[in-house]
Simulated assay, not measured.
Amino acid sequence: MTALPPRPAPGVYAIVNRVLSPNDERLAITFNGSDQPATATVRTDSPAQRWVIADYDTRTQSVSPQSSQNLQAAWGSGFVTVLPAGNYVWTIRNTDTGYTIQDGGVTVFWGVANAVDGAEVTIGDGTGNEKQRWFFEKI
């Protein structure tokens, strides 16, 4: 088995939650428009589930919807939102159970409260829960 790299290489990815829905469906982060919460929805080949990962520096990366690369994933009120690009960066790191996505200061995690279709992608304290783990599927 090939080990995952310490962080995803720059490129286009579907970002899929580690936990399946109650219907055994994979849930991918979905872009819902500027200034709207990102949600975890059933994984399809939808352009709304394609994210561009770009290196910002040696430690952090930006996350932008492929269809609107002038926008970036940003920190909303307890959830991930998408705003005009403003050097919003994230620390994406490999763990034994999938990647974590944290703020640049490595204090909070992206996750879902419940692994159900349409769940908001939250930003909060680390729980160690697999709902705060992600897979990056190269597109």
Rank of each mutant, 00 (worst) to 15 (best):
S68W: 09
T2I: 12
W75D: 13
Q66E: 13
V82E: 00
N32I: 07
Q72R: 06
L71R: 05
T97Y: 15
G128N: 08
G111T: 07
R7H: 10
R50G: 06
S21W: 04
E25S: 12
V112C: 03
N129C: 09
A40M: 09
S21P: 05
N23K: 13
W110G: 01
G11A: 07
T60L: 09
T2C: 11
E130C: 06
I101K: 02
V108F: 10
T95C: 04
G86T: 07
P65G: 09
P47G: 06
Y13E: 03
F31N: 01
Y56A: 04
D55I: 00
I92G: 00
W51P: 01
A113W: 08
Q66T: 07
A54D: 12
Q72C: 05
R7S: 07
A48S: 12
W134S: 00
Y56T: 02
D55H: 04
V108M: 08
F31P: 01
P65N: 09
S46V: 07
A115Q: 08
V16C: 02
P84I: 03
D55Q: 08
R133G: 03
I92M: 04
R18Y: 05
F79C: 13
F135S: 09
Q69N: 11
A73I: 03
P65C: 10
K131H: 09
S67T: 15
K131S: 12
T60N: 10
V116E: 04
D125S: 14
N23V: 09
P22T: 11
I139R: 10
T30F: 02
Q61M: 07
D117H: 13
G126D: 10
N87R: 11
A119R: 04
P5Q: 06
T97D: 15
V52G: 00
V112M: 11
P6E: 08
P22W: 06
E137N: 11
A74E: 03
S77V: 10
F136Q: 01
T107I: 02
